[in-house]
Amino acid sequence: MKTVTMADVAKQANVSKSTVSQYLNKRYDYMGEKTKARIEQAIKELGYQPNIVARSLKQKSTKTIGVIVANILHNFSTEVSRAIEDVCHKADFHTIICNADDDPDKEKKYIEMLRAKQVDGLIIFPTGNNRDLYRKMLDQNYPVVFVDRSVPDIPISSIMLENEKASELAVDYFAKKGHERIAMITTPMNENVSSRVERLEGYQRALQSHGLDVREDYMRSIDPDQVEGILEEMLALDQPPQAILAGNDLILKEVLTFSKLHHFKIGEDLSVIGIDDVPYASFYSPSITTIAQPTFKMGKMAGELLLDKINKKSTADQRPDYHFEPTLMVRESVKDNKED
Protein backbone atom coordinates (compact mmCIF):
# COMPACT_ATOMS: atom_id res chain seq x y z
CA MET A 1 0.00 0.00 0.00
CA LYS A 2 1.37 3.41 -0.99
CA THR A 3 2.37 5.65 1.88
CA VAL A 4 0.23 8.77 2.07
CA THR A 5 2.39 11.90 2.10
CA MET A 6 1.89 15.52 3.09
CA ALA A 7 1.85 16.35 -0.63
CA ASP A 8 -1.11 13.99 -1.08
CA VAL A 9 -2.99 15.77 1.71
CA ALA A 10 -2.18 19.17 0.19
CA LYS A 11 -3.44 18.06 -3.21
CA GLN A 12 -6.65 16.59 -1.77
CA ALA A 13 -7.34 19.74 0.28
CA ASN A 14 -6.29 22.08 -2.56
CA VAL A 15 -3.72 23.89 -0.41
CA SER A 16 0.09 24.11 -0.31
CA LYS A 17 2.34 21.70 1.60
CA SER A 18 3.41 24.59 3.87
CA THR A 19 -0.25 25.17 4.81
CA VAL A 20 -0.63 21.49 5.73
CA SER A 21 2.58 21.77 7.78
CA GLN A 22 1.22 24.81 9.60
CA TYR A 23 -1.99 22.91 10.31
CA LEU A 24 -0.11 19.88 11.70
CA ASN A 25 1.97 22.17 13.93
CA LYS A 26 -1.18 23.98 15.11
CA ARG A 27 -0.12 27.33 13.70
CA TYR A 28 -3.58 28.60 12.81
CA ASP A 29 -3.01 32.36 13.09
CA TYR A 30 -3.64 33.13 9.43
CA MET A 31 -5.67 30.05 8.50
CA GLY A 32 -9.38 30.25 7.79
CA GLU A 33 -11.87 27.80 9.26
CA LYS A 34 -12.79 26.44 5.83
CA THR A 35 -9.13 25.72 5.06
CA LYS A 36 -8.69 23.90 8.37
CA ALA A 37 -11.83 21.87 7.71
CA ARG A 38 -10.61 20.85 4.21
CA ILE A 39 -7.22 19.72 5.57
CA GLU A 40 -8.85 17.84 8.42
CA GLN A 41 -11.19 16.09 5.99
CA ALA A 42 -8.34 15.23 3.60
CA ILE A 43 -6.29 13.71 6.45
CA LYS A 44 -9.29 11.65 7.49
CA GLU A 45 -10.15 10.45 4.00
CA LEU A 46 -6.57 9.53 3.08
CA GLY A 47 -5.67 8.07 6.48
CA TYR A 48 -2.57 10.26 6.68
CA GLN A 49 -0.16 9.65 9.58
CA PRO A 50 2.54 12.33 10.11
CA ASN A 51 6.14 11.07 10.06
CA ILE A 52 7.03 11.74 13.69
CA VAL A 53 10.72 10.92 13.20
CA ALA A 54 11.07 13.34 10.29
CA ARG A 55 9.25 16.07 12.19
CA SER A 56 11.46 15.50 15.23
CA LEU A 57 14.61 15.86 13.15
CA LYS A 58 13.36 19.05 11.55
CA GLN A 59 12.14 20.62 14.80
CA LYS A 60 15.02 19.21 16.90
CA SER A 61 12.44 17.98 19.38
CA THR A 62 10.66 14.67 19.87
CA LYS A 63 7.99 16.32 22.08
CA THR A 64 8.66 13.46 24.49
CA ILE A 65 10.02 13.29 28.03
CA GLY A 66 11.16 10.31 30.07
CA VAL A 67 10.16 9.61 33.67
CA ILE A 68 12.30 7.10 35.59
CA VAL A 69 10.64 6.17 38.88
CA ALA A 70 12.58 4.41 41.64
CA ASN A 71 9.79 1.91 42.32
CA ILE A 72 6.45 1.97 40.52
CA LEU A 73 4.84 -0.03 43.36
CA HIS A 74 4.85 3.05 45.59
CA ASN A 75 1.56 4.92 45.59
CA PHE A 76 3.63 8.13 45.61
CA SER A 77 5.33 7.18 42.31
CA THR A 78 2.01 6.43 40.62
CA GLU A 79 0.31 9.67 41.65
CA VAL A 80 3.30 11.89 40.87
CA SER A 81 3.72 10.24 37.45
CA ARG A 82 0.04 10.80 36.69
CA ALA A 83 0.38 14.51 37.49
CA ILE A 84 3.50 14.78 35.33
CA GLU A 85 1.65 13.11 32.45
CA ASP A 86 -1.26 15.55 32.83
CA VAL A 87 1.08 18.56 32.58
CA CYS A 88 2.91 17.15 29.57
CA HIS A 89 -0.31 16.16 27.79
CA LYS A 90 -1.57 19.74 28.01
CA ALA A 91 1.72 20.89 26.46
CA ASP A 92 1.44 18.28 23.66
CA PHE A 93 4.34 16.26 25.05
CA HIS A 94 4.35 12.47 25.26
CA THR A 95 5.58 10.68 28.39
CA ILE A 96 7.56 7.45 28.65
CA ILE A 97 7.57 5.99 32.18
CA CYS A 98 10.25 3.50 33.24
CA ASN A 99 10.63 1.61 36.53
CA ALA A 100 14.18 1.35 37.94
CA ASP A 101 13.32 -0.95 40.87
CA ASP A 102 15.79 1.03 43.03
CA ASP A 103 18.52 -0.57 40.91
CA PRO A 104 21.31 1.82 39.79
CA ASP A 105 22.24 -0.42 36.84
CA LYS A 106 18.67 -0.47 35.61
CA GLU A 107 18.40 3.29 36.10
CA LYS A 108 21.61 3.78 34.06
CA LYS A 109 20.25 1.67 31.19
CA TYR A 110 17.01 3.66 31.14
CA ILE A 111 18.83 7.00 31.14
CA GLU A 112 21.00 5.88 28.24
CA MET A 113 18.07 4.33 26.34
CA LEU A 114 15.83 7.38 26.71
CA ARG A 115 18.60 9.75 25.68
CA ALA A 116 19.33 7.53 22.66
CA LYS A 117 15.65 7.92 21.74
CA GLN A 118 16.28 11.68 21.95
CA VAL A 119 13.67 12.49 24.55
CA ASP A 120 13.72 16.22 25.26
CA GLY A 121 14.29 15.86 29.00
CA LEU A 122 14.15 13.52 31.99
CA ILE A 123 12.41 13.44 35.35
CA ILE A 124 14.23 11.00 37.61
CA PHE A 125 13.48 9.58 41.06
CA PRO A 126 17.23 8.98 41.50
CA THR A 127 18.90 5.95 43.03
CA GLY A 128 21.80 8.31 43.74
CA ASN A 129 24.41 5.90 42.42
CA ASN A 130 24.83 7.23 38.88
CA ARG A 131 26.65 10.43 39.76
CA ASP A 132 28.79 10.45 36.61
CA LEU A 133 25.69 10.27 34.43
CA TYR A 134 23.90 12.99 36.42
CA ARG A 135 26.96 15.26 36.16
CA LYS A 136 27.31 14.55 32.44
CA MET A 137 23.73 15.71 31.87
CA LEU A 138 24.45 18.87 33.86
CA ASP A 139 27.63 19.58 31.88
CA GLN A 140 25.69 19.17 28.63
CA ASN A 141 22.87 21.46 29.86
CA TYR A 142 20.47 18.58 29.30
CA PRO A 143 17.05 19.25 30.90
CA VAL A 144 16.63 17.07 33.99
CA VAL A 145 14.66 17.29 37.25
CA PHE A 146 14.84 15.05 40.31
CA VAL A 147 11.79 13.98 42.33
CA ASP A 148 11.57 12.68 45.92
CA ARG A 149 15.34 12.68 46.45
CA SER A 150 18.31 14.97 46.06
CA VAL A 151 21.88 13.84 45.37
CA PRO A 152 24.74 15.51 47.33
CA ASP A 153 26.96 17.79 45.23
CA ILE A 154 24.77 17.33 42.14
CA PRO A 155 22.98 20.69 41.70
CA ILE A 156 19.90 19.37 39.91
CA SER A 157 16.65 20.82 41.23
CA SER A 158 14.62 18.28 43.19
CA ILE A 159 10.93 18.22 44.07
CA MET A 160 10.75 16.84 47.60
CA LEU A 161 8.64 16.42 50.71
CA GLU A 162 9.77 17.97 53.99
CA ASN A 163 10.70 14.46 55.07
CA GLU A 164 12.02 15.27 58.52
CA LYS A 165 8.85 17.16 59.31
CA ALA A 166 6.76 14.19 58.12
CA SER A 167 8.29 11.97 60.80
CA GLU A 168 8.10 14.75 63.37
CA LEU A 169 4.37 15.15 62.77
CA ALA A 170 3.86 11.43 63.39
CA VAL A 171 5.99 11.28 66.56
CA ASP A 172 4.40 14.46 67.91
CA TYR A 173 0.95 12.94 67.47
CA PHE A 174 1.96 9.66 69.11
CA ALA A 175 3.42 11.61 72.04
CA LYS A 176 0.30 13.77 72.28
CA LYS A 177 -1.72 10.57 72.68
CA GLY A 178 0.52 9.41 75.52
CA HIS A 179 2.81 6.99 73.66
CA GLU A 180 6.37 6.73 74.95
CA ARG A 181 7.67 3.61 73.18
CA ILE A 182 7.60 4.49 69.49
CA ALA A 183 9.27 2.38 66.81
CA MET A 184 10.00 3.17 63.17
CA ILE A 185 10.29 0.66 60.33
CA THR A 186 11.43 1.77 56.90
CA THR A 187 12.78 0.24 53.71
CA PRO A 188 16.57 -0.39 53.50
CA MET A 189 18.59 2.64 54.48
CA ASN A 190 20.84 3.98 51.76
CA GLU A 191 22.71 7.23 52.23
CA ASN A 192 22.02 8.04 48.57
CA VAL A 193 18.24 7.86 49.15
CA SER A 194 17.88 11.17 50.94
CA SER A 195 14.17 10.83 51.74
CA ARG A 196 14.69 7.70 53.87
CA VAL A 197 17.65 9.21 55.71
CA GLU A 198 15.72 12.42 56.43
CA ARG A 199 12.66 10.55 57.72
CA LEU A 200 14.79 8.56 60.16
CA GLU A 201 16.58 11.72 61.31
CA GLY A 202 13.25 13.47 61.83
CA TYR A 203 11.99 10.52 63.89
CA GLN A 204 15.08 10.56 66.13
CA ARG A 205 15.00 14.32 66.64
CA ALA A 206 11.29 14.27 67.50
CA LEU A 207 11.82 11.55 70.11
CA GLN A 208 14.57 13.62 71.70
CA SER A 209 12.41 16.73 71.72
CA HIS A 210 9.82 14.83 73.75
CA GLY A 211 12.44 13.39 76.12
CA LEU A 212 11.86 9.86 74.78
CA ASP A 213 14.54 7.20 74.38
CA VAL A 214 16.06 6.63 70.94
CA ARG A 215 16.40 2.84 70.94
CA GLU A 216 18.31 0.88 68.33
CA ASP A 217 15.93 -2.07 68.71
CA TYR A 218 13.03 0.22 67.78
CA MET A 219 14.60 1.36 64.48
CA ARG A 220 14.74 -1.08 61.59
CA SER A 221 15.48 -0.58 57.89
CA ILE A 222 14.44 -3.71 56.04
CA ASP A 223 12.83 -5.11 52.91
CA PRO A 224 9.02 -5.26 53.13
CA ASP A 225 9.00 -9.07 53.20
CA GLN A 226 10.98 -8.95 56.47
CA VAL A 227 8.41 -6.87 58.35
CA GLU A 228 6.57 -9.82 59.89
CA GLY A 229 9.72 -11.25 61.47
CA ILE A 230 10.90 -7.86 62.73
CA LEU A 231 7.52 -7.08 64.31
CA GLU A 232 7.54 -10.45 66.05
CA GLU A 233 10.98 -9.57 67.49
CA MET A 234 9.92 -6.08 68.57
CA LEU A 235 6.69 -7.20 70.19
CA ALA A 236 8.53 -9.95 72.10
CA LEU A 237 10.83 -7.41 73.81
CA ASP A 238 10.51 -6.84 77.56
CA GLN A 239 9.29 -3.36 76.65
CA PRO A 240 7.60 -3.74 73.27
CA PRO A 241 6.74 -0.62 71.27
CA GLN A 242 3.28 0.83 71.75
CA ALA A 243 3.32 2.53 68.35
CA ILE A 244 4.78 1.91 64.90
CA LEU A 245 5.69 4.57 62.36
CA ALA A 246 5.72 2.97 58.90
CA GLY A 247 8.26 4.84 56.78
CA ASN A 248 6.33 4.38 53.52
CA ASP A 249 3.29 2.72 51.98
CA LEU A 250 4.98 -0.63 51.33
CA ILE A 251 5.93 -0.97 55.00
CA LEU A 252 2.46 0.12 56.12
CA LYS A 253 0.88 -2.62 53.99
CA GLU A 254 3.04 -5.25 55.68
CA VAL A 255 2.29 -3.89 59.17
CA LEU A 256 -1.45 -4.13 58.49
CA THR A 257 -1.03 -7.63 57.06
CA PHE A 258 0.85 -8.66 60.22
CA SER A 259 -1.91 -7.30 62.44
CA LYS A 260 -4.52 -9.37 60.60
CA LEU A 261 -2.46 -12.56 60.68
CA HIS A 262 -1.59 -12.24 64.36
CA HIS A 263 -4.92 -10.80 65.52
CA PHE A 264 -3.51 -7.50 66.74
CA LYS A 265 -6.14 -4.76 66.87
CA ILE A 266 -4.82 -1.61 65.26
CA GLY A 267 -5.73 1.38 67.42
CA GLU A 268 -6.05 -0.83 70.52
CA ASP A 269 -3.20 -3.35 70.78
CA LEU A 270 -0.90 -1.34 68.54
CA SER A 271 -1.01 2.22 67.26
CA VAL A 272 0.09 2.86 63.67
CA ILE A 273 0.84 5.86 61.46
CA GLY A 274 2.03 5.54 57.88
CA ILE A 275 3.93 8.05 55.77
CA ASP A 276 2.04 8.27 52.44
CA ASP A 277 -1.73 8.65 52.41
CA VAL A 278 -2.62 5.44 50.58
CA PRO A 279 -6.12 5.23 49.00
CA TYR A 280 -7.34 2.52 51.40
CA ALA A 281 -6.32 4.40 54.56
CA SER A 282 -9.66 6.14 54.95
CA PHE A 283 -11.85 3.03 54.61
CA TYR A 284 -9.62 0.39 56.23
CA SER A 285 -11.10 -0.72 59.55
CA PRO A 286 -10.04 1.03 61.66
CA SER A 287 -9.13 3.90 59.36
CA ILE A 288 -5.40 4.61 59.29
CA THR A 289 -3.79 7.86 60.40
CA THR A 290 -1.25 8.89 57.77
CA ILE A 291 1.15 11.63 56.76
CA ALA A 292 0.04 12.82 53.33
CA GLN A 293 2.26 14.16 50.58
CA PRO A 294 0.80 16.65 48.08
CA THR A 295 1.64 14.24 45.27
CA PHE A 296 -0.27 15.94 42.47
CA LYS A 297 1.18 19.36 43.31
CA MET A 298 4.66 17.83 43.38
CA GLY A 299 4.16 16.08 40.05
CA LYS A 300 2.71 19.22 38.49
CA MET A 301 5.72 21.27 39.57
CA ALA A 302 8.14 18.62 38.31
CA GLY A 303 6.48 18.59 34.90
CA GLU A 304 6.29 22.37 34.65
CA LEU A 305 9.90 22.80 35.78
CA LEU A 306 11.18 20.34 33.18
CA LEU A 307 9.14 21.93 30.39
CA ASP A 308 10.54 25.32 31.41
CA LYS A 309 14.05 23.94 31.04
CA ILE A 310 13.22 22.36 27.68
CA ASN A 311 11.73 25.64 26.46
CA LYS A 312 14.81 27.52 27.75
CA LYS A 313 12.70 29.50 30.23
CA SER A 314 15.03 28.58 33.07
CA THR A 315 18.81 28.69 33.08
CA ALA A 316 21.45 26.19 34.19
CA ASP A 317 20.63 24.32 37.37
CA GLN A 318 21.75 26.34 40.36
CA ARG A 319 18.26 26.60 41.82
CA PRO A 320 17.41 25.24 45.24
CA ASP A 321 15.30 22.18 45.87
CA TYR A 322 11.54 22.62 46.17
CA HIS A 323 10.14 21.31 49.46
CA PHE A 324 6.48 20.56 50.07
CA GLU A 325 4.70 20.47 53.43
CA PRO A 326 3.35 17.14 54.75
CA THR A 327 -0.12 16.95 56.31
CA LEU A 328 -1.24 14.80 59.25
CA MET A 329 -4.44 12.95 58.35
CA VAL A 330 -5.94 12.02 61.73
CA ARG A 331 -8.06 8.87 61.73
CA GLU A 332 -8.57 5.92 64.09
CA SER A 333 -5.34 3.93 64.21
CA VAL A 334 -3.75 5.68 67.20
CA LYS A 335 -4.92 4.76 70.67
CA ASP A 336 -5.33 7.52 73.24
CA ASN A 337 -3.16 6.20 76.08
CA LYS A 338 -4.02 9.20 78.22
CA GLU A 339 -7.48 7.74 78.68
CA ASP A 340 -6.02 4.67 80.46
Rank of each mutant, 00 (worst) to 15 (best):
M1H: 05
T5C: 00
M6N: 14
A7V: 11
D8W: 06
K11Q: 15
K11C: 02
V15Y: 00
S16A: 15
S18R: 04
T19G: 12
V20Y: 13
L24G: 08
N25G: 01
R27I: 03
Y30S: 10
K34M: 09
R38M: 07
P50S: 12
G66M: 11
V67M: 12
N71L: 07
H74R: 03
S81E: 03
R82T: 09
A83T: 04
C88M: 06
A91Q: 14
K109H: 08
M113Q: 13
V119R: 14
I123G: 02
F125Y: 15
R131K: 09
K136V: 06
L138M: 13
L138I: 02
Q140N: 10
Y142S: 13
V151R: 06
P155S: 07
P155R: 15
P155I: 03
S157R: 13
K165S: 12
A166Y: 12
A170N: 03
E180L: 06
I182Q: 08
T186P: 00
L200E: 06
V214K: 13
E216D: 00
D217V: 03
S221I: 04
S221N: 09
G229N: 07
L231P: 01
Q242M: 04
A246W: 01
N248K: 01
L250K: 09
I251H: 07
K253Y: 02
E254A: 10
V255S: 03
I266D: 12
E268V: 01
V272H: 00
D277M: 01
T289A: 10
Q293Y: 11
K297S: 08
E304S: 13
N311K: 12
P320I: 10
D321K: 06
E325W: 06
V330Q: 03
N337R: 14
